[in-house]
Design a protein around this nucleic acid. Structure first.
Length: 275
DNA sequence: TAACGTACCTGTGCGC
DNA sequence: TGCGCACAGGTACGTT
């Protein structure tokens, strides 16, 4: 499932593949993916003749910058983009196709149809949801120990739930939250407000480091994620706890456990991460 | 208002 | 072998 490092990898490849291309028309096979405007025909009409100027990212959202619009795309669980020629065979899970004037097309494929797209007038996209609700990214200047301390003090939730909350910190998903908590030696079911200053500092540091290390190797490729070249990342080889239930902890040798926390499958080492 | 539960989806894996 | 069910998970929205 794409989290911040995977989305960043997709963004980089999209910049190489589609910047400068002009959209001839758009095919929408599953209208529910288009969240804004409400009528998908308006989405199709607006995109006709638009050239892709850049591809940005905020948290796990991709932002296609066009002449007059910004297309905000979330891949959710299994969404991915592939650049194809118009005569290449179609796949049954391809739901949106951006046909370019040069005969190529950008295909949005999403087995579970969870992904979303919002089209806004350029310049307004950051002022409305979903982007306006996002908190800072783990490597932004505003993501400080004091910022976290303030947020944690105001909630009764466990740390796992708080780190998954994109309004607190954007970019972490289930995999990286487990990894960051293990690296910071914090039990996922600890109340966020119970963390010491030292633990919060460790958490902040590990969140930034984990994501940066993953971006450097192209993200992780758990399950079905692929970037737009059809290539996979390699960070999954460095995962310390996620998907390793019953295996030995690489730090201490204790068996990795899997529980349900914040409604999500949660992996941790009961020895390194004591409650 | 905060926190929790559920819906959205489909492929996969497991048990019977 | 084949069927049916539980599970996976990010976010929005409804409920408590």
């Amino acid at each position: 499932m794409p989290e911040l490092p995977e989305v960043e990898t997709v963004r980089k490849t999209l910049v190489e593949l589609v910047v400068g291309k002009t959209i001839k028309e758009v095919t929408v096979g599953w209208p529910k993916i288009i969240q804004h405007p409400l009528e998908y025909e308006q989405f199709q009409d607006a995109l006709q003749g638009q050239t892709i100027i850049d591809v940005n990212r905020k948290g796990k959202f991709l932002i296609f910058i066009l002449d007059d619009y910004a297309l905000v795309s979330h891949l959710r669980m299994e969404g991915n983009y592939r650049l194809k020629n118009e005569d290449d065979p179609k796949d049954k899970h391809t739901h949106i196709i951006f046909h370019f004037k040069d005969g190529t097309e950008l295909r949005y494929r999403d087995v579970r149809k969870f992904g979303t797209m919002h089209l806004f007038t350029k310049g307004t996209e950051e002022t409305v949801p979903p982007l306006s609700k996002l908190g800072p990214e783990p490597f932004s200047k505003s993501f400080t120990t004091n910022y976290l301390k303030e947020k944690f003090a105001k909630t009764e939730r466990i740390i796992k739930a708080v780190l998954l909350d994109q309004t607190i910190v954007t970019g972490l998903g289930n995999i990286y939250v487990d990894e960051v908590l293990h690296r910071a030696e914090i039990h996922p079911e600890r109340k966020a407000k119970s963390l010491t200053d030292q633990e919060i500092a460790r958490l902040r540091e590990q969140a930034a480091a984990t994501l940066q290390e993953s971006i450097a190797v192209g993200g992780s490729s758990v399950n079905t994620y692929m970037n737009s070249h059809g290539l996979t990342g390699s960070y999954q080889e460095q995962l310390l706890v996620y998907g390793r239930k019953g295996e030995a902890c690489l730090q201490c040798g204790e068996q990795i456990e899997k529980i349900k926390a914040a409604g999500r499958g949660t992996h941790f080492c009961p020895n390194c991460q004591k409650i």
